[in-house]
Structures are given as structure tokens and as C-alpha cells.
């Protein structure tokens, strides 16, 4: 193998991967808004509907706003969409997503908070990569999912806090959900003014 050949191979591979990388990022930029829209209508909206336990007369998806909840390791702001549910123009509940590490990556939980009562409303799962039939039994367990309903925001709901019963056989998944809920509560407490 001559040096010329090696240089040629390196060059060809670099050019091919470079061109495709650029092209892919263009496609990604072009489809980003549409994908965002699809995710909101197909995943977040149904979850929000399930998690909103109060009466409301607006369209929370349409009235959503974006808040900044901190910065990531590169210093870029982390944004989160907040969905307000209003009754006669007054916000009665807000819904937003929070994430907690389960057995296999993050579990997305849509949680709602009742503004007047200052308690949790309810929760619903949005995205997850848990093992079907093993971890996912936690999501189908009504006793587990319902224990978050109407809990006070001052209760420690994180795993090991003693206030959440995990589902047998799906401990990591249960912990992930609890972590996500606790994180959501903390986001709400910290950014209450931005959210409302």
C-alpha cells in the first residue's frame, strides 16, 4: 500500500462523510419544526389531556409558552414548553414535561399542577424506552400512577423518600417516574413566576 493510496482513501472517506453530514443537518433543520409539531399533537397533547383533571375552556396546546429552566453543559439555555389550562381566562392548572432516568434512558412525564390548590394534578407518560412488558407494567399500574394525584408540592416524591410505592418487578421504571415528577415539582417551584 503506497502513501498515495492511503492519502486517497482518507480523502475520499472525509469528503463523502463531510458532504453527507452537511446534507443531513440541512434536512434536520428543514424538518425540525414539522417534527416538533407532530410530537406535540401526537404525544404531548394526548398525555396532557389525560393529565389534566380540571375543567378548562381554552386550548392549552395553542396557548403554550416556552420558558428557560437553566443552561446545559455548553451554556445553551434549556427550554421547556408549558401548557396553561384556563377557565374564564384564569389559569387553573399548568402542564409541562419533566424527565427522570429509568432502566433504559429517560422517561418523559407530563405532569399538571393545580395552581389554586398548589398541589399536583395528575401525571401521564409521554416518551420512554423501557422494556415492553417488564418496565412498562408500571405505566399500566393504576395504583402506582394514581398515587401522584393531588399530592402536596411539599411531599418528597423522589425514590427512597418513603412517599411513593414502586411497582414490583419495575423498580427502576417506577423510580424514573418518581424522579421525573420530583424534578417537575422543583422546576415549578423555581420558575413559578415564569410559568404563570
Amino acid at each position: 500500500m503506497t502513501a498515495r493510496e492511503i492519502v486517497r482513501m482518507v480523502l475520499v472517506l472525509t469528503i463523502v462523510t463531510g458532504i453527507w453530514g452537511g446534507l443531513l443537518s440541512l434536512v434536520k433543520i428543514a424538518t425540525e419544526d414539522q417534527i416538533q409539531y407532530q410530537r406535540i399533537t401526537n404525544i404531548k397533547a394526548p398525555a396532557l389531556k389525560r393529565a389534566l383533571t380540571v375543567e378548562y375552556d381554552n386550548d392549552p396546546i395553542k396557548d403554550r409558552k416556552t420558558i428557560v429552566i437553566g443552561t446545559d453543559s455548553k451554556g445553551k439555555p434549556i427550554e421547556r414548553a408549558v401548557f396553561p389550562a384556563k377557565q374564564k381566562g384564569k389559569i387553573v392548572a399548568v402542564g409541562f414535561e419533566a424527565y427522570g432516568g429509568g432502566y433504559e434512558g429517560d422517561i418523559g412525564v407530563m405532569l399538571t399542577i393545580l395552581v389554586e390548590e398548589d398541589t399536583l394534578g395528575s401525571i401521564a407518560i409521554t416518551t420512554h424506552t423501557e422494556t415492553p412488558g417488564v418496565g412498562t407494567i408500571a405505566f399500566q399500574n393504576d395504583t402506582f400512577m394514581n398515587q401522584f394525584k393531588n399530592r402536596s408540592l411539599n411531599t418528597n416524591l423522589s425514590p427512597g423518600g418513603g412517599n411513593v410505592d414502586a411497582v414490583t418487578g419495575a423498580t427502576y421504571t417506577s423510580d424514573g417516574v418518581a424522579k421525573a415528577v420530583q424534578q417537575g415539582i422543583e422546576i415549578y417551584k423555581k420558575h413559578k413566576e415564569d410559568i404563570l
Binding site: M9, V12, L13, W20, L24, V27, K28, T31, I35, Q38
Partner: peptide, 28 residues
Amino acid sequence: HIPSKIRVPVFIVIIASAVTIVELMMEA
């Protein structure tokens, strides 16, 4: 232009990128 020694990686890059385009389009 594709040296035969690295043809398979080049093919895979092309195929994988095309698949990613399909995936993004389908999701959108």
C-alpha cells in the same frame, strides 16, 4: 472514484444517510 479497499464504508455512509433522511421525513 471510490477506492475498492474502502468501498464498503463509503456504501454504508451513503445508505445510512439516505435512511436517516427517510426517517426524518417520515417522522415529519
